[in-house]
């Protein structure tokens, strides 16, 4: 197959970037989107053009390292990550625009590579259960209803890719944050820290400069882990109640 690529090139975090046009020739239909870029990079190298820089690691849709906004859609059309997007899904000869994830809190570092450390700091603000290795009771001492465990797993499936914030017209990270708040919040082990967790994580999210949620649901549509926006509703509730509790001094 053959494609006309319009790729965002940017030499550094401070410099201005622009779109460059490249041709992707004889691409096998079985190739993944990133393998297509590998091939393009190979012959850019031959031509003496600096290869396109983009993140990827596991290449099987689980590490959340790959990004890319393809024709305006983070991770491209259809559920799943960029590394699990296959070229047979595109039309031969199609023009494909490739841009980095866009959000003010995800500064572009180079070409298609963005900095997602804002997510790290949100996790550090409360995305954990305070517990020490060796202090745990027997794993079966607290039964957890299957449905609760399953729902918690649905939320825990988030791969931290940042597509939600990149898709959101407001650059809001609500889906990511709500996934973690829901994952830990549903479990009895997480319960003691629920108020603290949601307060600290949401406040950190705001500090990082992510936008507010206008209930556009673009995040839900692109999320490769299928995190539902209903978790955002849940977090809205939890956060407001936790704030009230804190103001009357029954939560820290």
């Amino acid at each position: 197959m053959k494609f006309n690529l319009e790729v965002w090139r940017q030499t550094g975090p401070k410099t201005e970037g622009k779109i460059e046009k490249y041709e992707a020739n004889n691409i096998p239909a079985e190739a993944s989107f990133l393998e297509m870029l590998d091939i393009v990079n190979e012959d850019l190298t031959k031509k003496g053009v600096e290869p396109i820089q983009f993140d990827s690691d596991c290449r099987e849709g689980i590490c959340g390292n790959c990004s890319l906004t393809i024709n305006g859609v983070p991770h491209g059309q259809g559920r799943g990550t960029t590394c699990q997007l296959y070229m047979r899904k595109f039309r031969d000869g199609q023009t494909i625009t490739i841009e980095p994830f866009r959000a003010d809190s995800f500064p572009v570092e180079r070409d298609l590579v963005v900095n997602r450390e804002a997510f790290e700091r949100i996790m550090q603000a409360g995305g954990f259960i305070s517990e020490r290795a060796g202090s745990a009771p027997d794993a079966n001492s607290v039964p957890i209803p299957k449905i609760v465990a399953d729902q918690s797993m649905d939320a825990a499936a988030c791969i931290g890719c940042g597509a939600c914030a990149a898709a959101c017209p407001n650059g809001s990270a609500m889906l990511f944050v709500s996934a973690k708040v829901t994952h830990l919040g549903l479990l009895p082990q997480g319960e003691p820290e629920n108020d603290r967790r949601v307060l600290n994580m949401v406040r950190q999210m705001d500090k990082e400069g992510f936008g507010n949620c206008s209930n556009y649901y673009a995040c839900e549509a692109v999320c490769p882990a299928g995190i539902p926006a209903s978790f955002i509703a849940r977090m809205n509730r939890e956060y407001s109640f936790a704030s009230i509790k804190q103001s009357v001094g029954i939560a820290v």
Binding site: F128, A136, A139, A149
Partner: peptide, 16 residues
């Protein structure tokens, strides 16, 4: 034990 305490959502039976 450690992982359950950390909130790892292992698969469970209906009995919990």
């Amino acid at each position: 034990d450690q992982c359950v305490a950390q909130g790892v959502p292992f698969a469970r039976e209906y009995g919990g």
